[in-house]
Computed example of a mutant assay.
Amino acid sequence: MSADILIVQHAEKTAAPGDPGLSERGRRQAAAVAERLVDARPSLLLSSPLARALQTAEAIGAAVGLTPTVVDELCERSSWPGPEAMPEEDFLRDWRRTCRERAFRPRIGDSSHATAARMARALRGAARKARHGPAVLVCHGGATVDLLRDLVGDRQLEHRYPGAVEHGLPGTAVTHVAVGATGETQVVTIGDLGHLPDDLVTGHVPAWT
């Protein structure tokens, strides 16, 4: 059975290390993407366990009548736990290296290749479980980009969404992936922000959008 998967980036988080929740603007972003998804009539709602993703998923769930299921495979490639565990500059150095060298495993988190593999498992699992409507996966910019690098390749990804590899995707950007009956995938859209007014857009947006 074929399935549509809508990958939603979490809304804007508060500027804090560890596992922060959504900012005030992030809550407004989450409400906007939730309203958009009502018409899509999703049949399944999955979320990363991190607070910023789960709070976004809960806003979506309240609008579409679904309870989000936490799936660890949707977690971000790496998240800065705070200066007590690692200086921020060291974390950022590792993060940038994971973007350049996909096999590199940072001191905190997973390599780009490993993240893409677990995202692909979550995608296939969601496609099997989705019934009578798309599956919504709420996750993170780095993890989604890692998946897309595997699905379409770096060249096509940078053509379709310039700067995605380096900067990720904006808050509540929606990426549509169609999964065929035999498991083949088609990336239909990347980083759609049609539900957000300009004042709610946060994160990297290519100049042509």
Rank of each mutant, 00 (worst) to 15 (best):
S2M: 12
D4P: 03
V8E: 00
T14F: 04
A16C: 12
L22W: 02
E24I: 08
R25H: 03
R25K: 13
R28P: 01
Q29E: 03
Q29M: 06
E35L: 09
L37Q: 00
D39R: 05
D39W: 02
P42T: 12
L44E: 00
L44A: 12
L45F: 04
S47G: 11
S48T: 03
P49L: 09
R52S: 13
R52A: 09
L54T: 07
T56M: 13
A57I: 05
E58G: 09
A59M: 08
A62M: 05
A63P: 02
L66E: 06
L66R: 09
P68C: 15
T69I: 13
T69V: 15
V70Q: 11
V71K: 06
D72A: 15
D72V: 13
E73W: 12
C75D: 08
C75N: 10
R77S: 06
P83M: 08
M86P: 01
E88T: 01
D90W: 05
D94F: 00
D94N: 11
W95C: 05
R97H: 00
R100T: 08
R102A: 12
A103Q: 12
P106F: 11
I108Q: 04
S111N: 11
M119P: 04
A120I: 00
R121F: 04
L123D: 07
L123I: 06
R124A: 15
R124E: 13
A126G: 12
A127L: 14
R128Q: 15
K129Q: 07
A130S: 11
R131D: 00
G133R: 06
V136Q: 01
V138M: 08
H140G: 14
G142M: 09
A143F: 06
A143T: 02
L147Q: 07
V152K: 02
V152N: 01
R155A: 15
R155L: 10
L157V: 07
T172P: 11
A173W: 01
V177C: 15
V179G: 14
E184V: 08
E184Y: 03
E184F: 05
E184K: 07
V187C: 08
V188N: 08
I190K: 01
I190S: 05
G191R: 10
D192G: 09
D192A: 12
L193G: 10
L196F: 02
P197G: 11
P197A: 07
P197V: 01
L200G: 05
P206H: 09
